[in-house]
Write a protein that binds this DNA or RNA. Structure first.
Lengths: 133, 133
DNA sequence: TATTATAAGTGTATAATACACTTAGATGGC
DNA sequence: GCCATCTAAGTGTATTATACACTTATAATA
């Protein structure tokens, strides 16, 4: 997306697309959804991510599938093929013990980030004269 | 930095370095500092960024200099050379009108992100049994 | 039989970061 | 005068994350 032009969300208000590539937090979101749902497959997570996204950009299927692959290589999730269900075979993922720990680490890191961002936003707002009232 | 190993912050608690490449928010931080300080040069901003960083990783000189260059190409800042001061010549930056608007957009976007992150962290914490008490 | 929904990807370009390295002016110690 | 150090502004290049398009294949439905 070219900076300053967002065709998806219009010109009503600035959105992450128009600000360049913002981190989408695919990894912690995937770990969180796996923890919450127990077992799931990628395609189902794609739907869940449409409602969970932390920015106003949606997370792409490609990004999710690659992230799941990497999480498995790192030992944070394990997968098995489900060929019993109707439709194409599903690769069913599950959090490992290590993955649970990793999610908890993400929660700590993102907690700090949320606080820092809130503080920054508050300080930055003070630099501009209030337009309301 | 290899994931899971942070030589800078030790093993006391998870840090952004060990979680992979997290967005460092160099652009909004630079815009904010320029708004706050009026006129500054890159080297001074590097020092300021050491105290303002939103993650526990410091922002690198290389990233800042490239960001300032890009901001100028986009018309968000303007620069002039200061050869009067002692030492090597300084490229002195200043926010433009467009840059002020862009900073305000960043504040809106990061405000939303801070809220989303705080909500996510809160929901994720609920998935783990409390260890305290 | 053709279309659509489901499911899991790959290809490839751009963008952000990580770490190392370079260039060059000024200052202070010897 | 010479060398180390501080100041200032970069560049080189590899890795990681994202963006968007595209492919493959199974099953259900019209």
């Amino acid at each position: 997306m070219r900076r300053g032009h967002c065709h998806r969300h219009g010109a009503d208000q600035p959105c992450t697309c128009a600000m360049g590539n913002l981190y989408r937090f695919v990894e912690p979101l995937a770990l969180y959804l796996l923890k919450k749902r127990g077992q799931t497959h990628g395609y189902e997570l794609i739907g869940a991510l449409r409602e969970q996204a932390l920015t106003d950009s949606t997370i792409e299927p490609g990004a999710l599938y690659r992230t799941l692959r990497r999480l498995e290589e790192s030992g944070f999730v394990s997968s098995t093929w489900d060929i019993a269900a109707s439709g194409p075979a599903r690769r069913v993922y599950e959090l490992t013990e290590l993955g649970e720990q990793h999610l908890q680490e993400w929660v700590i890191v993102l907690g700090h980030l949320a606080e820092s961002l809130a503080g920054f936003v508050s300080e930055a707002r003070d630099l501009f004269p209030s337009t309301s009232s």
